[in-house]
């Protein structure tokens, strides 16, 4: 019901646009560093561990590039990035909206005639749907770079071997899957967190609980959605 109220005609398009831009900056630009750090280590660790598993087997070592690329694109970049973003962005959304509820900012807007569900939630959802897929694509790229650094610079395989792996068996369906996952996860983490914040009651303890619940519920739903998407798109 909250979502239905949120998705309605804006009172003033320019105000919603301004708020959406602010949220894009918060959610997108504000998350670049954390997503980059996580992505580079995901790629690096995947490459090192796969090299360890290949040791003494007949599987060619250039498969490292292929495995890093596909595991990153299909699973690690969208899922790990969004789990982390649920912690960073989700808790922030819940705390921001919940704080506004407690300080009577939402009541003040309601009395002015503002559709608060729409003004406070819709820009966050749109900003998440636009920025999170971009962050996930960036994470995938940086992960592959991390894999390169750990395997090539680390001396596990050569530059040519890694590139050969990267260029082998490429399926653009995997990229589509990554984008679909990131869109679904973005929707989950923004709406669940906004809901938790919007209906917060009580004081600072309840606000903290709402923020925690936003992260926990978002994480569980993201993992569940990950499974369902994997089932549907890999048939």
């Amino acid at each position: 019901m909250l979502l239905r109220t949120a998705i309605s005609r804006p009172e003033k398009f320019s105000m919603y646009w301004k708020e959406t831009m602010r949220q894009m900056d918060d959610i997108g630009v504000g998350s670049i560093i954390i997503v980059s750090i996580i992505a580079i280590f995901i790629g690096a660790v995947t490459a090192v561990q796969f090299a360890y598993q290949l040791d003494g087997t007949l599987v060619p070592r250039w498969y490292i590039g292929y495995i890093v690329r596909d595991s990153t694109i299909i699973e690690l970049a969208p899922t790990i990035s969004c789990l982390v973003l649920a912690g960073k962005v989700g808790s922030n959304i819940a705390a921001e909206i919940g704080g506004m509820r407690q300080k009577e900012h939402i009541d003040a807007m309601e009395i002015m005639g503002v559709n608060t569900a729409s003004y406070l939630i819709l820009p966050k959802v749109i900003a998440g749907l636009v920025m999170i897929p971009i962050l996930v694509c960036m994470a995938a790229f940086i992960s592959i770079l991390g894999g390169y650094l750990s395997s090539v610079v680390g001396g596990l395989i050569t530059h040519e071997e890694y590139l050969r792996g990267l260029r082998s068996f490429f399926s653009d369906h995997n990229v589509v899957m990554m984008v679909i996952k990131s869109l679904v996860f973005a929707f989950i983490l923004t709406t669940v967190s906004a809901y938790q914040g919007y209906y917060v009651k009580g004081g600072s303890i309840e606000l903290g609980q709402a923020s925690t619940q936003a992260v926990v519920y978002s994480d569980i739903l993201i993992l569940l959605a990950d499974y369902v998407i994997a089932l549907l798109l890999t048939q």
């Binding site: 009172e11 300080k103 009577e104 900012h105 003040a108 009395i111 002015m112 005639g113």
Partner: peptide, 29 residues
Amino acid sequence: RMEVGMLFQGSALFDSMTVEENVRFPLDM
């Protein structure tokens, strides 16, 4: 509600906005 103004106990001013932006908010909206 467009014809209603309300002063809250805690003022309920938007922290991220200046005094001027707070007062202008209903006009902008």
